[in-house]
Design a binder for these strands. Structure first.
Lengths: 114, 114
DNA sequence: CAAACACTTCATGAATCGTTCAACTGTTGC
DNA sequence: GCAACAGTTGAACGATTCATGAAGTGTTTG
């Protein structure tokens, strides 16, 4: 019997076109996700969801070295997830924008749904 | 002059409490982001945004080996980004839910904004 | 039931990532 | 200006991740 499948229909006329998405945009989105794809960095982001923190505070509260935290923040900053400003001798970090907070919340929700 | 800074105020009373977030949820969210944090897998996801594709189609359209695509899909499926179903001898993949599509769109938008 | 097809899984080597120590830069207070 | 403080950067290392070929699983067709 010749019951043709959905896939064969789609298949029949050669390769389906891949959606035209700017490689640079894709690359940037991937870097963004990769930056968020680490538990330690994610924990940092959840702190910053509450407001500004300086590096020393983060290090003390998380029980990690200053350099370690700084490196993690550097990655997050490189992908535009966090912003910073100087205040006296401290440097205060915060989430870059609401956009980031939203993505963070959405991912955590997706996580809890499993 | 003794102009006390924002950071010193926050600093004064020991370590600030880290937000209480289930480590498992954080871990899951990180895995989710990590799965999305790769250009090749992201490209796969953008294909699936258009509907169902079988593995062979994806491989042909993207010009990659079958095994390569299959491995990438495995990662995405492991983190619940894509779903699959069998149709005849093909296996059709699609985005797991609208939730994923939304996260994808949000990240691509964030990417374009830079 | 055997051959063909459509994948998946395993194993491996290459590349990338994350942490850490040491050295460096910038700011404040004496 | 110099010592102390706050943070960044560079280099080295182990740990993870990614792509790929070979072998294995499941489905259909003759």
């Amino acid at each position: 019997m010749n019951r043709s499948t959905v896939a064969e229909e789609l298949h029949a006329h050669g390769a389906r076109p891949v959606p035209a998405i700017d490689t640079a945009a894709l690359e940037a989105a991937a870097s963004f996700f990769r930056a968020a794809g680490d538990v330690s960095r994610l924990r940092l982001l959840t702190c910053l969801q509450q407001g500004e923190w300086c590096v020393t505070e983060l290090a003390e509260s998380l029980g990690e070295g200053l350099s370690t935290i700084s490196q993690r923040l550097k990655v997050l900053r490189g992908e535009g997830l966090v912003a910073r400003r100087r205040d006296g001798k401290h440097i205060l970090y915060s989430l870059a924008d609401d956009h980031v907070a939203a993505l963070l919340a959405a991912a955590l929700e997706h996580a809890r749904e499993r």
